[in-house]
Simulated scan of single mutants.
Amino acid sequence: MTAPPENLADRPATPGDVGAPGGVLGGDPDGRPHDLLSELLRSVRLSGERIVAHTPPPSFSIGFADRGSLHIVEAGEVLLEIDGYPHAEHLRRGDFVLLPRGDSHSISDVGGRAHAIALADGVADDVPEPARWLCGTFTIGDPQASHLLGSLPAVIILRGSGGSGGSGGSGGPALEALEGLEVARRMIVLEMQSPSQGSAVMVSRILDLIFIQIMRTWASGADAEPTWLAGAFDPQIGLALSAIHREPGHDWTVDELARASNLSRSAFAARFVARVGKPPATYLAHVRLDAATTLLRDTFLPVANVAESVGYASEAAFSRAFKNRYGTPPARWRRDVRFR
């Protein structure tokens, strides 16, 4: 969708019909910072599913696919290989590994060959510690919002005391996060060892906590890749993202978002791309169409009213953008969703 330089997307028919943002830009009306991460995770409807303990014999390889996955290495060493990625990750005790997009991957034993050789030579002291790890899975309640997770990296690793490098660190916020994650791991283990009424819900909620903690620890780090999550943790760009998500139908301009971020227009545009990975206009278009899917699915508003609510000047412009994104016109998309 092409827009004049001063505008980010098709203008609403009348800005007053949609409403200007109220209160503080990027915050709640009472001045509190807007919790963008919580809002976006609620829109995805991410939910911890279940946890399994893996204690395979030496020389193993286990595949995982089609689910967001969490691996917590409790003992030994394993090798993580992600389909389509040439680099394998060496994981050790204490590592927390999140695959938020659900990429197909496998975990195999790095010590199996050494184990067999040591046993054959009768050198018991050289036998590597058997691998043991926990694997949790996640479900996405709203497939239309799954692109939010799809824009994240294939794998996020917080290295424990037994490892080095990766996305974790040896001190500061990463260390504090690992301490909290270790408490969560122990709570899961207790529920697995002594299940009782409510254990399934307990495990699901703890998995949710671990997922969020890993994501926000990664996003607040200096080496975070450009995504909406990294942008949300930027003290200035986060203000613009929050404003966009609070009022996607508002007639946003680059100048207005730059002022909300306390940056000049040029500095804002450059920083937005560096943190989020796409220009403000593209991001705004995605947010507007996401909001449209919610209205189409959950209300009986006519398509023209949906278009106006999310900031499009005409139903035709909205329908073109919607079809380009989802491959079908909005009216047909609504029928298909409701008949599933």
Rank of each mutant, 00 (worst) to 15 (best):
R93I: 04
R265M: 08
H54E: 07
Q197M: 15
L98K: 11
Y312P: 02
A285R: 15
G160D: 10
F211S: 01
A243Q: 11
I214T: 14
G26N: 09
I117T: 06
F322W: 08
R93C: 12
P5G: 08
M215A: 07
G112E: 01
A260R: 13
G166K: 00
A285P: 04
S204D: 04
I212A: 07
A240E: 10
H245L: 11
F272C: 07
D126F: 11
N7K: 13
S194G: 03
E256P: 00
G311V: 09
H54A: 02
V201H: 08
G27F: 01
R32N: 04
R32G: 00
H87V: 07
H147K: 05
S242T: 05
F339G: 15
T14C: 14
R42L: 15
A222G: 04
A174G: 06
A307D: 06
F60E: 05
R271T: 07
F300G: 14
L98R: 02
F64T: 07
H105W: 02
A307W: 13
G84Y: 08
V273T: 07
L41N: 10
S319M: 02
G198V: 03
D109S: 15
V123K: 13
R132Q: 14
R50G: 13
P128A: 01
G112H: 03
V254G: 09
A317E: 13
E182G: 01
G76S: 14
H87F: 05
R320P: 01
R11D: 09
A154S: 09
P21T: 10
R11Q: 09
A258E: 11
T14M: 05
R113P: 11
L91P: 00
G94P: 11
T2H: 12
S164K: 13
R216T: 15
L241A: 03
S146W: 10
V123N: 07
V52Y: 14
A292P: 00
I156R: 02
I244P: 00
C135A: 05
S61K: 05
S264L: 09
Q193M: 02
A243K: 05
F322A: 01
R265C: 10
T294I: 14
G168C: 08
R259W: 06
V78L: 03
L229M: 13
V287S: 09
L158K: 00
A3R: 15
D223A: 01
L41E: 10
L37D: 11
G327R: 01
A154Y: 12
D35K: 05
I157P: 00
I212L: 11
A313W: 04
H115I: 04
R246N: 05
E39G: 15
G84W: 04
Q236G: 11
F318I: 01
V276E: 00
A232Y: 14
A116V: 15
R271H: 10
A291P: 01
A120Q: 12
A243N: 12
G163T: 04
D17K: 01
V24F: 03
V303D: 04
L289S: 12
Q144E: 10
S196N: 11
A269S: 13
L190V: 03
F64R: 13
R132K: 06
R265P: 13
P57M: 00
F96S: 03
S220I: 03
G172P: 03
L152P: 04
P5E: 12
L149M: 10
P330I: 01
A224R: 13
T227R: 01
G27S: 10
R320G: 03
S266D: 08
R288E: 13
T55G: 14
I214G: 02
L257W: 10
S170H: 13
I206K: 05
L79A: 03
S309D: 10
W333Y: 14
